[in-house]
Design a protein around this nucleic acid. Sequence first.
DNA 1: CAAGCCGGTAACTAAACGGTTACTTGATGA
DNA 2: TCATCAAGTAACCGTTTAGTTACCGGCTTG
Lengths: 225, 225
Amino acid sequence: MNDSGEHGEKKMSRRPSQERTSQRDPERTRAAILEAATREFAENGMGGARVDAIAERAGTNKRMLYHYFGDKEQLYLRVLEEAYVGIRTAERALHIGDRSPEEGIGELALFTWRYFLEHPEFLSLLGTENLHRARWLRQSVRLKELHSHLIGELSQVLEQGKKQGVFIETADPLHVYLTIASLGYFYLSNQYTLSTIFGRDLIEPAHLNAWERHIVHVTLASIKR
Amino acid sequence: MNDSGEHGEKKMSRRPSQERTSQRDPERTRAAILEAATREFAENGMGGARVDAIAERAGTNKRMLYHYFGDKEQLYLRVLEEAYVGIRTAERALHIGDRSPEEGIGELALFTWRYFLEHPEFLSLLGTENLHRARWLRQSVRLKELHSHLIGELSQVLEQGKKQGVFIETADPLHVYLTIASLGYFYLSNQYTLSTIFGRDLIEPAHLNAWERHIVHVTLASIKR
DNA sequence: CAAGCCGGTAACTAAACGGTTACTTGATGA
DNA sequence: TCATCAAGTAACCGTTTAGTTACCGGCTTG
């Protein structure tokens, strides 16, 4: 009997694929392109991003990029979609309804701020996409349902708070989320011009911590009775 | 006596410059290029903006653009500088110290929101400049002093409010301004992705008015005792 | 009134860009 | 063991781009 029965496993006696890296590994190549593209688009925008630069950053070449993603625009859309999936997935794991309404909202504000802080590329991509009036996001079929969950959960927490008499009756879930996102997004995405014109380095840890507290304070002050 | 003595006036008997428009009018050409560039940069960012497109929009050609502004980067910086001068000049005319502290802050919030609403190109330019980490703004020598006035005046209003016992002691002028700007900037500059993912058209007048009231409410709620 | 300068035009150039083609390499299964 | 097909490479292509050059024409001034 020969060794033909072992075909189901990837492991082989000669040249295991793990040893010689980045050779014949479609998954790895694909992921590398996506990550490289995320950085390139985040740093340079859609118009400024270079396909050659993405290929080089990914340690491959243009042919593979076009093979896996079609063209520059489709690659950009995939990058954007993955970025949204990233934050919404992490957000879901919060379960802001588990604590008191006040703590829940504070938790969401803190999470959003820290996620923005740790994922500057997400903010950049949002900026780029809005510059183009959501031209590519609008084409996405994957993302519409991703966001109803957020508003739904937030709405429940607000309702509970109103019932308990700690939140004002006019508190609106979308407004609360936009408030939280506004305060985090603007501070971070505009830190460079702001630091320049006001002569203060906003990315300094002391200022970052002060703004984190400020976001929670403002958010709660705006809905507390 | 001949007509040589009239050389001081632009008016002449043959072909007054006003009749045949856009011919031999350096001021007009210069202004047209600046305005066209503002729109082109705002719509497409630094990487996406096309020099040919600017020239065409201005009703002239590239030669003039390079003649008056040097190159694409210098033109972009002039556009950015003019945009900042625009908002800060309008802001100065407010005189927020003339009314009560509470009204003064509300006034500033309303002004900022409405200015952002009426000048989407300003928001776009800020976004573009921040994508590039204020690379060009940092080179500007004109703008540093333009912003101390804003913080100074705001600081006075806050101090007055604290003395009167209507504002909390921890209210900080930079934080207050950033709060106001955050709420306006994020809502407008990210309206396209937000409208898409949340399925609500945020630019609708009813929503705009609601957010305007929300900004004033949040700003005052965050500093009132 | 002639000379020269300045506002303006259009065609051009070298480089960079997105995208493609022709080809090589290596794993798989009959 | 050899045919097949997917992974990967690199040179290439037509177009677009920022920036330049050569030139035109009317206004100002000595």
